[in-house]
């Protein structure tokens, strides 16, 4: 008989921590580049676009891994509101990680910008050019980024709450492999 998993699979853990670094870096690059007129501005934009596409590819891979290797269940004694919170915040994280690169790509398309990733790599536009659509998508990109950052703070706070206060193995299930086989 197959047991339910007690920890995240290795692919899930690798993707989680890799994307944690990338997504957090992207949020800081994004707010930093629009608030700077220095040389950093060009350097950060040059990073932002290819990293965004990398995250888009990784999040698709991650959705597959999540479907292929189900997540370990939450502790049975976790209050319902926390269970709900976990479900909603994880859904929001996946949705935002998927939406942000697509909105960014669409925004550059609407602005009539060439979508260059460096080294001559160029992506096609995914929406028609138009100033009104550009501004809507540009603001969406900004406010969804703020929402993603707030969701990250909540996620990190909750993870530390599991690891330091409840000490119920939830944080450990993403830190290390399975400790109990069968």
């Amino acid at each position: 008989m197959k047991s339910t998993p007690t920890a995240f699979s290795l692919p899930a853990r690798i993707l989680h921590w890799l994307m944690a670094v990338l997504v957090l870096a992207m949020l800081f690059i994004g707010v930093g580049m629009v608030a700077s007129v220095s040389e950093r501005h060009q350097w950060l934009i040059g990073l932002h676009k290819p990293l965004g596409i990398a995250i888009l590819i990784l999040v698709l891979l991650r959705l597959y891994v999540r479907w292929r290797y189900p997540a370990p269940p939450l502790p049975a004694d976790l209050p319902t509101w926390q269970r709900m919170g976990a479900y909603l915040s994880h859904s929001a994280l996946y949705a935002l990680m998927l939406a942000m690169p697509l909105v960014g790509w669409a925004m550059l398309s609407a602005g009539g910008y060439p979508i260059t990733l460096g080294y001559g790599v160029q992506l096609p536009p995914i929406v028609p050019a138009g100033p009104a659509l550009f501004s809507v998508l540009r603001y969406a990109h900004q406010y969804l980024a703020y929402l993603l950052f707030l969701t990250f703070l909540l996620h990190m706070g909750a993870a530390l709450y599991h690891g330091l206060i409840r000490r119920d193995g939830v944080l450990r299930s993403m830190m290390r492999g399975k400790r109990i086989e069968e």
Binding site: Q42, G111, P131
Partner: peptide, 20 residues
Amino acid sequence: LPARSAAYADSYLRRTGEEA
């Protein structure tokens, strides 16, 4: 150059937002 890029982007967002 980066300052022109950054300021033009800000101006572009303001005027396209006004068109929207």
